[in-house]
Design a protein around this nucleic acid. Sequence first.
DNA 1: TTTTGTTGTAACCATTGACATTACATCCAT
DNA 2: ATGGATGTAATGTCAATGGTTACAACAAAA
Lengths: 146, 146
Amino acid sequence: MQISSRFTVALHIFTCLEVFKENNKVTSDFLAGSINTNPVIIRKILAQLKNAGLITVARGTGGITVNRPLEEITFYEVYQAIEPIENGDLFHFHEAPNPECPVGRNIHSLLDSKLKAIQNSMEDEMRKYTLADLKIGMQDILAKEI
Amino acid sequence: MQISSRFTVALHIFTCLEVFKENNKVTSDFLAGSINTNPVIIRKILAQLKNAGLITVARGTGGITVNRPLEEITFYEVYQAIEPIENGDLFHFHEAPNPECPVGRNIHSLLDSKLKAIQNSMEDEMRKYTLADLKIGMQDILAKEI
DNA sequence: TTTTGTTGTAACCATTGACATTACATCCAT
DNA sequence: ATGGATGTAATGTCAATGGTTACAACAAAA
């Protein structure tokens, strides 16, 4: 199972914001054009980022503001804002293993800490990258493109 | 998006094998009972593990053999056997970003290495745990249970 | 104050994947 | 041969993803 494209779309949105906000009004239509999807899809993702407190969206006039310094906002925060994971567990268990079976009733004790360690190592790596990396990285790429 | 329960079910299967194989013939019915699911679900997962070369399943008579030493088989190998991920990428992109847009045509250059690093850190952690840990871990738990 | 452009959302729809279930052909040791 | 397994096709249900249309709410500018 792959992690849904909404996460990479969110990173795409932030990158567009930084690259274009000087010279363009970055609307959901504009973003949908760059990402090649539907404006409503963008608005739904913007709503999630807004609910997480990461951005402010101006109604009526349009326009998006990032609420905090770019170096402070990590990929992990974006991921958390976007992915609605049940009690935060990356790995899914089959519900209700048989409590009559010694293995069935202890499988969680056995696996939980190991799976948590795996999930943590992914999330820790996510915390190493910030929106500032997106801005600088894209500016670099564009400077070399010409 | 959570990783499907088939992965934890596979780990459950291996644990049952080690705990019960001495005294019971471990069939798909037996496993389905411990996990609390349908035998056909178990057989499909067994088929994946078989295709990956991790186990041998005896037709007719029934019974499952692990093909290699337990210390050699890591969670990562089980994960790879079970999760059919398109070209191995954990993170999904929206298809066909707009090549007319500077961000759209460069979003992969910008993100690919970072996302790969995140995925790698998860997979590296997965390589730290083996089927031997499952066997020993469960034996420990059961010894304390009495 | 009306117009214009934008966001917020509801209401759908199609597709896909996970998980479940039934049914039956196939296999193999006894 | 037969009894107990596996292999697998066919089908169903459910939830999530991604898309689309439509329209109300809103705010700035004409």
